[in-house]
């Protein structure tokens, strides 16, 4: 699994209320949700995000509510992967369960700047920041979680 895109950068504690505000949770249509992704902290996100782009966040990314609409909105807006210093645990589960790739890499987050081009190779556990000419090693997911990812999400995994 390889991804490549430009960085859209945020700070610490990006919560699920700003990823997708509750006023839009009266639907779970992913295209509808994507229209409002990040609206409350970054009104320009929906207009500048391009397919493949990578969100880079600080500590505790995705804290707050359990709404799966948050990773769904991020994925539906074309984001290929989220890199953060750490993830809130329900967001972490939800992202894996719906097949949104996420990576914890504090060093990469510190170096990355808005617009940097980043490549991620999950199979070999490497991130490359082309602008900074730096590479980073990432820890592989536990085998059980890799199984869920390879199956294409939790529902497909349990059917196996």
């Amino acid at each position: 699994m390889k991804y490549e895109g430009n960085v859209i950068k945020y700070g610490d504690n990006v919560d699920t209320d700003v990823i997708i505000p509750a006023r839009y949770l009266n639907t779970f249509d992913e295209k509808e949700l994507a229209k409002h992704c990040m609206e409350d902290i970054d009104k320009t996100f929906v207009t500048r995000v391009k397919p493949g782009d990578i969100i880079v966040g600080g500590f505790n990314f995705g804290c707050g509510s359990s709404r799966e609409h948050a990773p769904i909105a991020i994925k539906a807006s074309g984001i290929s992967c989220v890199i953060a210093k750490s993830f809130a645990r329900i967001f972490y589960r939800n992202a894996i369960n719906i097949g949104l790739p996420i990576v914890e890499c504090p060093e990469c987050v510190d170096d990355a700047e808005e617009g940097d081009k980043i490549g991620i190779d999950l199979d070999n556990g490497v991130i490359i920041n082309y602008n900074k000419r730096k590479s980073y090693t990432i820890h592989p997911f536990p085998e059980f979680i890799q199984g869920i990812i390879k199956a294409g999400g939790l529902m497909k995994y349990i059917r196996q």
């Binding site: 707050g64 509510s65 359990s66 709404r67 799966e68 329900i90 589960r93 939800n94 369960n97 719906i98 999400g153 939790l154 529902m155």
Partner: peptide, 22 residues
């Protein structure tokens, strides 16, 4: 599938929030 599911810990239960797919 609600983050405040952890409330029932008050009763000596293990309870935790998850997402919709879980």
């Amino acid at each position: 599938a609600d983050s405040h599911t952890c409330t029932y810990g008050a009763l000596g239960a293990f309870s935790t929030g998850v997402g919709s797919t879980d």
